[in-house]
Structures are given as structure tokens and as C-alpha cells.
């Protein structure tokens, strides 16, 4: 079931390109497979870029601040 906001629209939208739907697709008959494909691609890009940024750009950009046994020595 859906709220009835849009259904009663009878006047044209600003978006003249937005024609009324060719067909009504209800909740139960809709599987967003295209979205799954797109978001899957996004996921792969994120994972690849994360590894590249962390292990190539960051770790390869040494020297890096490391923990040290010297910590705290030398300061009064």
C-alpha cells in the first residue's frame, strides 16, 4: 500500500519530461535489480580504491609516525 500523494496529480509537472507512468509497478512486483547491479559496482570500486589508498598511497608514502620506546623521554 502506498500513500496517495502523487496519484491525484492532474496538472502538468514542471518537469514536462515526466510523463505519467506508462505502467504502474506496485511494491510486490518490483525488484530493483538494476540498483543491485549499480550498487554492486560501487561496492567493488570502494573496496579496490580503499586498498589502493591505504596500502599504496598511504603506506607507500613513508616515513610514517610510529610508536617508539622513546616516548616521553627527554621532556620535563
Amino acid at each position: 500500500m502506498s500513500s496517495a500523494t502523487e496519484q491525484s496529480t492532474e496538472r502538468p509537472d514542471t518537469a514536462a519530461d515526466v510523463d505519467g507512468p506508462i505502467k504502474e509497478i506496485g511494491h510486490d512486483e518490483y525488484d530493483p535489480i538494476g540498483t543491485l547491479v549499480l550498487i554492486g559496482l560501487y561496492f567493488l570500486i570502494l573496496v579496490a580504491l580503499w586498498f589502493f589508498m591505504y596500502f599504496v598511497e598511504f603506506v607507500g608514502n613513508d616515513p610514517t609516525v610510529v610508536s617508539s620506546i622513546l616516548m616521553g623521554v627527554g621532556l620535563v
Binding site: 610510529v66 616516548m71 616521553g72
Partner: peptide, 10 residues
């Protein structure tokens, strides 16, 4: 504050 960082320069 004092910023303290240890770095190894090879």
C-alpha cells in the same frame, strides 16, 4: 600542547 611524534628515517 606539545606534539610528539617518532619517525624512522631510513
Amino acid at each position: 600542547e606539545i606534539s610528539t611524534m617518532t619517525v624512522e628515517f631510513d
